[in-house]
């Protein structure tokens, strides 16, 4: 007991420092975690989250019977898989090319510019996309009609183009960020390995194949696993704001996040919305834990825990 008092006398200021963060996390993160039980209740605004009557799994039963349930999970997973594969290939390729360029100034400039899209919000991105895709005066339609004489495309009402558009925008926005991660790894590769390869008579392509790529292997695996851990999540702005909430596109733009938002704010369907949200949280939790466990086995320094 006396020991405890002595310890507290010494350490209380340090515990006090935790306080703002502890309070904030409690409100911002922990209360909503408990509030997740709303998915098992029939929400009644007058009675609040903890007073609404329990209804067991009814919300989930209703959700599963809708066509939305399948569409949003399919879209979330497929888009993420394509984003991960193409994003990784593009970033690795760009990082390798950048690392082979000799002119230091040029290198720096390329890197700086390619990161710019990472810095802007999805709202801005949606305006940029609209400048290209606007049906009446967008750049693409203008060019198609005037230069090639092809009929204008009503982009925001034509679902079949959107998987490509969203993938391109995602690549455009994320390339700089991902490239930097791989580029940093390349800079960390032991230069004697390259010298040894030159002594062995390796050409540039062989050096990339036998030194650079093996050097990038663990970073690629780790970042991919981390991304797989988040495969049930999606960027709300990309799937809601960029397609401008256009009804005809919903089949190819609905993800779990947009469904939850629409249920909550537009269709007043809190039951199914919270059921979808809970599903996302629980599966997401399992995926993150799994991904991290595997990462730890490969490289314990890179795992989250």
């Amino acid at each position: 007991m006396k020991k405890f008092v002595v310890k507290m006398q010494r350490y209380w200021p340090l515990y006090l420092m935790f306080l703002p963060g502890v309070v904030y996390l409690f409100i911002n993160s922990y209360i909503p975690m408990f509030g997740i039980q709303i998915a098992f209740r029939q929400y009644n605004a007058a009675k609040g989250v903890f007073g609404s009557p329990w209804i067991g799994l009814k919300n989930f039963e209703f959700l599963i019977r809708t066509k939305d349930a399948w569409v949003m999970v399919r879209n979330t997973l497929l888009y993420n898989i394509v984003f991960i594969i193409l994003g990784t290939v593009a970033a690795v390729a760009t990082a390798i090319i950048l690392s082979e360029i000799r002119n230091k100034k040029a290198k720096q400039t390329y890197q700086t510019i390619i990161l710019i899209p990472f810095l802007i919000s999805m709202v801005i991105v949606s305006y940029l996309a609209f400048a290209f895709l606007s049906t009446s005066n967008g750049f693409i339609n203008n060019t198609l009609v005037k230069v090639f004489g092809i009929k204008a495309i009503d982009w925001y009402n034509t679902p079949k183009h959107w998987p490509f558009i969203l993938v391109i925008i995602n690549l455009w926005k994320g390339l700089g960020y991902n490239m930097i991660l791989y580029y940093a790894t390349i800079l960390g590769i032991d230069s004697t390995l390259y010298e040894a390869a030159v002594v062995d008579g390796a050409n540039r392509w062989q050096k990339v194949l036998h030194v650079t790529l093996p050097g990038l292997k663990s970073t690629i695996i780790i970042l991919t696993l981390m991304a797989l851990g988040g495969i049930f999540r999606s960027d709300f702005g990309l799937f809601y704001q960029v397609p401008q909430n256009s009804g005809p596109l919903i089949n190819v733009t609905q993800t779990i996040d947009t469904y939850v938002y629409r249920g909550l704010m537009q269709n007043n369907n809190i039951g199914m919305s919270s059921a979808a949200g809970l599903y996302q949280s629980v599966v997401g939790f399992v995926l993150v834990i799994t991904a991290n466990t595997i990462v730890r086995k490969i490289d314990s320094d890179s795992s989250l825990f």
Binding site: N28, M33, L264
Partner: peptide
Amino acid sequence: FFTMLFSGGLVPAYLM
């Protein structure tokens, strides 16, 4: 750390 692994999601946060 736990707040990075699990989240209540939009609905409970919004209601709160």
